[in-house]
Lab assay of single mutants.
Amino acid sequence: MQIFVKTATGKTITLEVEPSDTIENVKAKIQDKEGIPPDQQRLAFAGKQLEDGRTLSDYNIQKESTLHLALR
């Protein structure tokens, strides 16, 4: 499925993911596309910060959802 990640600079990244993917996997995909190390990424959805060990389906993130990326 496709999801979107909006960066602090307003850029939107499109990612191909599975509901079973962990947040860690998603951060690795962002690193592949943007070169941002996962340990510098903070992802949020619906106002909640997402934890590495959880999956997209844990957070009820569905196709075409938009996550927000902040850098630490």
Score class of each variant (00 low, 15 high):
M1L: 06
M1A: 03
M1V: 06
M1S: 03
M1E: 02
Q2K: 15
Q2T: 09
Q2P: 13
I3F: 01
I3E: 00
F4N: 05
F4Y: 10
F4H: 12
V5L: 05
V5T: 02
V5P: 00
T7Y: 11
A8S: 09
T9M: 12
T9H: 15
T9D: 12
T9Q: 13
T9A: 09
G10C: 05
G10Q: 06
K11Q: 09
T12D: 05
T12Q: 12
T12P: 05
T12L: 13
T12E: 06
I13A: 02
I13N: 02
I13D: 01
I13P: 00
L15W: 01
L15Q: 01
E16Q: 07
V17L: 06
E18F: 11
E18W: 11
P19V: 14
S20R: 12
S20T: 08
S20Q: 14
D21C: 04
D21N: 07
D21I: 06
D21E: 10
T22Q: 06
T22A: 11
I23F: 03
I23C: 02
E24Q: 07
E24V: 11
N25T: 12
V26G: 00
V26W: 00
K27L: 03
A28S: 14
A28E: 10
A28Q: 07
K29H: 07
K29Q: 09
K29G: 05
I30W: 01
I30A: 01
I30Q: 00
Q31D: 06
Q31H: 09
Q31R: 08
Q31M: 10
D32S: 15
K33T: 10
K33I: 15
K33A: 11
E34G: 04
E34H: 06
E34M: 13
E34P: 01
E34K: 05
G35R: 10
G35N: 07
I36L: 12
P37C: 05
P37S: 12
P37L: 11
P37F: 12
P37K: 09
P38T: 11
P38R: 10
P38N: 11
D39Q: 08
D39I: 15
D39M: 14
Q40R: 09
Q41M: 10
Q41S: 03
Q41G: 03
R42G: 05
R42M: 12
R42Y: 11
L43D: 00
L43M: 03
L43S: 00
A44I: 10
A44Y: 13
F45Y: 13
F45V: 04
A46M: 12
A46T: 06
G47I: 02
G47E: 07
K48F: 11
K48D: 08
K48T: 13
K48Y: 14
Q49M: 13
Q49H: 14
L50M: 06
L50S: 01
L50N: 00
E51P: 03
E51L: 14
E51F: 07
D52E: 13
D52P: 07
D52L: 05
G53T: 08
R54E: 05
R54M: 07
R54K: 11
T55F: 15
T55K: 13
L56G: 00
L56C: 03
S57W: 10
S57E: 13
S57M: 07
S57K: 13
D58M: 06
Y59A: 03
N60M: 08
I61S: 01
Q62Y: 13
Q62E: 12
Q62P: 12
K63C: 04
K63H: 08
K63M: 10
S65K: 04
S65V: 07
T66S: 05
T66K: 05
T66F: 06
T66C: 04
T66M: 11
T66Y: 08
T66Q: 05
L67P: 01
L67A: 01
H68C: 05
H68V: 11
A70M: 07
A70N: 07
L71Q: 12
L71W: 12
R72P: 11
R72Y: 15
R72M: 11
R72V: 14
